[in-house]
C-alpha cells in the first residue's frame, strides 16, 4: 500500500533500511529498543569502566593487591594542611597588601640565597608598589651592561626592565655558599611543588627538633614536611625579623603567609585577570549554551509533535 502511494519513497526506504528507520523515527509508533539497552550503551559503559579502573590503578595502585613501597611515610614528607588563603576560591584575587609585605620578606630574608629570575622590577608596578617606589628600589642595585663604544662592560644602576638580581653568579657558587645544597629559584616554586602554597607555608613554619631515633645528617635540619625530613635550609623566619611599614605584627607565621602569597603571585602573575576573565567567559558561554538549547527546542517543536497519517485510497469497486 505504501509503495503504491509513494513509489519513490518506498524504493528509497527499501534501499536504505537503516536510514529510513532514522528518518521516520519521530513519527513511528512501534516500540523501540531503549537507549540504555542498546549496544552503544554497553560498549560505552564498558569502555568507561575499564578506563576508570586503569586510571585509578595508575594513580593509587591496584586496590585489591598488597603493595610494597620502599618509602616510609616520613620519606614522602608530611602532607600540608589546607590553609584558608585569601586567594583561595574561583572568585578571589590575591591580597595585594600581603604581596607587598611578602616582597619585603623576600628582599630582606630569602633573597640572600634564593634567586627570582623570572620577575622583573616592572612586574611589581601596579601589583605591590607604585612606579616611583620600584624605580627607587631598582636604582639601588648595580647591573652590568654593555659593551659601550670602547667595547667595555660597565656598571649602571638598575631600571624597571631589569630582572631581579641573583644572589650567586652561578650554580657552583650557590652550592659552595650553602654547604653543597642548591637554593632553588623561587620564580615558579609554588607551581613546582606538590601542595603549592600550603606546602611552602608548612615548610617555612614547620621546623621542629628531630623526634627520637631520627638522625639528621651533618649540616642538615629536620623538617617533617620536607620529603625525607632532612633539609639543607635552616629555619629562617623568627618573630620580629622584619619590620612591616603597614605596622602588621611580624610574627613568623605572618611573614610565612606573606612571602608565600608573594611567591604565589610570582608563579602566577596572571592569576587575578585569569579568574576574572574566567568568570566573564563562564557567564557568556553558559548563556549562549542556554540560548542554543532554547532555539533547538523551538525549531524542533513542530517536527517532534507532528503525526503523519496515511489514509489509504478507497478501493474502487
Amino acid at each position: 500500500m505504501l509503495s503504491q502511494a509513494f513509489p519513490r519513497l518506498a524504493s528509497r526506504a527499501s534501499a536504505l533500511p537503516r536510514l529510513s528507520q532514522v528518518r521516520f523515527s519521530s513519527s513511528s509508533t512501534q516500540a523501540q529498543t531503549p537507549f540504555l539497552a542498546s549496544r552503544t550503551a554497553v560498549f560505552a559503559s564498558t569502555a568507561a569502566t575499564v578506563g576508570l579502573t586503569a586510571w585509578y590503578a595508575h594513580l593509587y595502585g591496584i586496590s585489591f593487591l598488597p603493595e610494597a613501597s620502599a618509602n616510609t611515610a616520613a620519606e614522602d614528607g608530611l602532607h600540608p594542611a589546607a590553609y584558608p588563603w585569601p586567594h583561595k576560591g574561583i572568585f578571589e584575587t590575591f591580597d595585594h597588601a600581603s604581596i607587598r609585605r611578602g616582597y619585603q620578606v623576600y628582599r630582606e630574608v630569602c633573597s640572600a640565597c634564593h634567586s627570582l629570575d623570572r620577575i622583573a622590577w616592572r612586574n611589581l608596578v601596579g601589583v605591590s608598589h607604585n612606579v616611583d617606589e620600584v624605580k627607587a628600589m631598582a636604582e639601588e642595585i648595580e647591573y652590568t651592561d654593555g659593551p659601550n663604544d670602547e667595547g667595555e662592560m660597565f656598571q649602571r644602576p638598575g631600571k624597571l626592565a631589569d630582572y631581579m638580581p641573583a644572589p650567586y653568579p652561578n650554580e657552583e657558587a650557590a652550592r659552595a655558599g650553602n654547604g653543597g645544597g642548591l637554593p632553588p629559584d623561587l620564580s615558579l616554586i609554588v607551581k613546582a611543588r606538590h601542595g603549592g602554597a600550603d606546602y611552602i607555608y608548612s615548610l617555612l613554619t614547620g621546623y621542629v627538633d628531630p623526634p627520637p631515633g631520627v638522625h639528621v645528617a651533618e649540616g642538615m635540619n629536620y623538617n617533617p614536611y620536607f620529603p625525607g625530613g632532612g633539609i639543607a635550609m635552616a629555619r629562617v623566619l623568627f618573630d620580629g625579623l622584619v619590620e612591616y611599614d603597614d605596622k602588621t605584627p611580624a610574627t613568623s607565621s605572618q611573614m610565612a603567609k606573606d612571602v608565600v602569597t608573594f611567591l604565589n603571585w610570582a608563579a602566577e602573575p596572571e592569576h587575578d585577570q585569569r579568574k576574572k576573565l574566567g568568570l566573564q567567559a563562564a557567564i557568556i558561554l553558559s548563556s549562549l549554551f542556554a540560548i542554543s538549547i532554547y532555539v533547538k527546542r523551538f525549531k524542533w517543536a513542530p517536527i517532534k509533535n507532528r503525526k503523519i497519517f496515511y489514509n489509504p485510497p478507497k478501493e474502487a469497486h
Partner: peptide, 15 residues
C-alpha cells in the same frame, strides 16, 4: 567581592 584586596584599593596609602 574583592574589596580591600586589590592594588587599586591599597594604592592610595602609598601615593
Amino acid at each position: 567581592h574583592n574589596r580591600g584586596k586589590q592594588w587599586k584599593d591599597i594604592r592610595s596609602k602609598y601615593i
